[in-house]
Amino acid sequence: MRVLVVEDEKKLAESLRVGLRQEGFVVDVCNDGVSGLWSATENAYDAIVLDIMLPRLNGYDVLKEIRRRRVWTPVLMLTAKDGDYDQTDAFDLGADDYLTKPFSFIVLVARLRALIRRGTPERPNVVTVGTLRLDPAKRRVHRGEHEITLTAREYGLLSYLMRHAGDIVTKGEILDNVWDSSFEGSENVVEVYISYLRKKIDIPFGLHTLLTVRGMGYRLTPDQSGDDLPSRLAGSGVGRA
């Protein structure tokens, strides 16, 4: 079993190298994000242990680039950061597990073995609703041929709506699935982000696919006018230099 450890704390990295070798793993170690990215994409590993706070290139960017290049090796994020948003960001980018420092070496080994037993997971395919496409692997969204730039929260909301296209989803369901469990704000935040999304996925294209169902929630529907989308783009100015 071959494992890559990307960790800038050299004492910890060496401790992991020694300990994992004693557990029967073959271990490569990198101390910065750039070399870690190179090793992760140029070599075959059964699992990757990846710190977030790395020099030269942080762990989030390393993970994002690994997945963009369609390398699906299981990744366990290892970091001193332990907020809900940190974990959510890691999982959204394609992490398979998460441990915070200080951690138990026994737990680390157990989780690595579990990841390796499960093997490389099958990654989700592109999700399509009408002319709207969302690629989970690349974290990119397109309406027709035009790429749409979204914030992390907007992306999470759109991903949830697209996976439930045609269904009415309530504010409560959206909060449960898009915001973390510690969120204590008003449900009205959903209305705000629905508005943000409409301004990016509908209004520039002359479409009305993200619907408000009064008293119930929201529903994303396929656009019925995909054939004339290029003319709509031209008329709206979207995509012009």
Rank of each mutant, 00 (worst) to 15 (best):
L4N: 01
V6R: 00
V6T: 08
L12D: 09
E14Y: 12
L16D: 10
Q22E: 14
Q22C: 01
Q22M: 14
V26S: 12
V29Q: 08
N31L: 03
D32L: 06
G33N: 09
G33K: 04
S35Y: 05
W38I: 15
S39L: 07
T41H: 04
T41Q: 13
E42N: 10
A44F: 08
I48E: 10
L50D: 01
D51M: 03
M53N: 07
L57Y: 07
V62A: 03
V62E: 02
V62H: 03
L63G: 00
K64L: 15
I66T: 00
R67N: 04
R68P: 05
V71G: 07
W72H: 13
T73N: 09
T73D: 10
P74W: 11
T79N: 04
T79S: 14
A80S: 14
D82H: 12
Y85C: 04
D86T: 15
D86V: 14
Q87P: 00
Q87E: 08
F91D: 08
D97Y: 01
D97I: 01
D97V: 00
P102C: 13
V109N: 06
V109L: 07
V109T: 09
A110T: 09
R111H: 13
R111E: 08
L112M: 10
R113D: 13
T120C: 11
P121W: 03
P121T: 04
E122P: 02
N125D: 15
V127P: 09
V127A: 06
G130I: 01
T131H: 04
R133C: 11
D135V: 09
P136D: 07
V141R: 03
R143M: 15
G144V: 00
E145I: 09
E147R: 12
E147F: 09
I148S: 10
T151C: 10
A152Y: 04
G156W: 00
L157F: 04
L157R: 00
L158E: 12
S159E: 14
Y160E: 03
L161W: 07
R163A: 11
I168F: 08
V169H: 06
T170P: 03
G172I: 05
I174D: 08
L175H: 03
D176T: 06
V178M: 05
W179T: 06
D180E: 12
D180M: 11
E184G: 05
G185K: 02
G185Y: 10
N188F: 14
V189P: 00
Y193A: 02
Y196S: 15
Y196T: 11
L197H: 11
K199A: 15
K200R: 12
P204A: 07
P204V: 08
H208T: 15
L210T: 01
V213A: 02
G215C: 13
Y218V: 06
Y218Q: 02
L220R: 02
T221Y: 02
P222G: 13
P222D: 14
G226R: 01
G226S: 06
D228A: 11
P230F: 10
P230T: 03
P230E: 12
S231G: 07
S231F: 13
R232T: 01
R232H: 10
G235F: 07
G235Q: 10
R240K: 15
